Amino acid sequence: MKHILTAVAFVACTTAASAGSLADPVIEAPIIVQEASSSSSGKVTVALLALLLMIPALSD
């Protein structure tokens, strides 16, 4: 009889210890707004790279 009462008390304590439900919580992702940037800086980079590659060829 003591074992049954101990088991009942254990089951009552373990069920009361779970807070909330067992379902996964729903977490909404933050919305990130990214502004469009112009690609004009890419042309300058390509031109500078071409200039740097031409310097050794022209120095010979």
Rank of each mutant, 00 (worst) to 15 (best):
S59P: 01
T14H: 10
G42I: 01
S21G: 15
A29P: 03
V44H: 03
V44P: 00
A12T: 09
K43E: 04
S40M: 05
A16V: 13
H3N: 06
A23M: 09
S40H: 06
G20V: 11
A23L: 13
G42E: 02
P25Q: 13
M54E: 03
L51G: 01
S39L: 13
G42R: 08
T6E: 01
I4R: 11
S41Y: 01
P30W: 10
I32L: 11
L52F: 10
S18Y: 15
A57H: 01
E35M: 05
T45L: 06
V8Y: 07
K2M: 07
S38T: 08
L49W: 03
V46S: 04
P30S: 14
L49M: 15
A23D: 11
L5E: 03
K43M: 01
A19R: 13
E35R: 09
A19Y: 15
K2E: 03
D24Q: 14
T15A: 14
A7N: 02
D60C: 00
I27Q: 08
V44D: 10
P56A: 02
I31Q: 13
V8A: 10
S18R: 11
T15V: 09
A36G: 11
K43H: 03
I32S: 04
S40E: 04
L52M: 10
S38V: 02
S37A: 12
V11A: 05
T14R: 10
I32D: 06
V44N: 05
A9S: 11
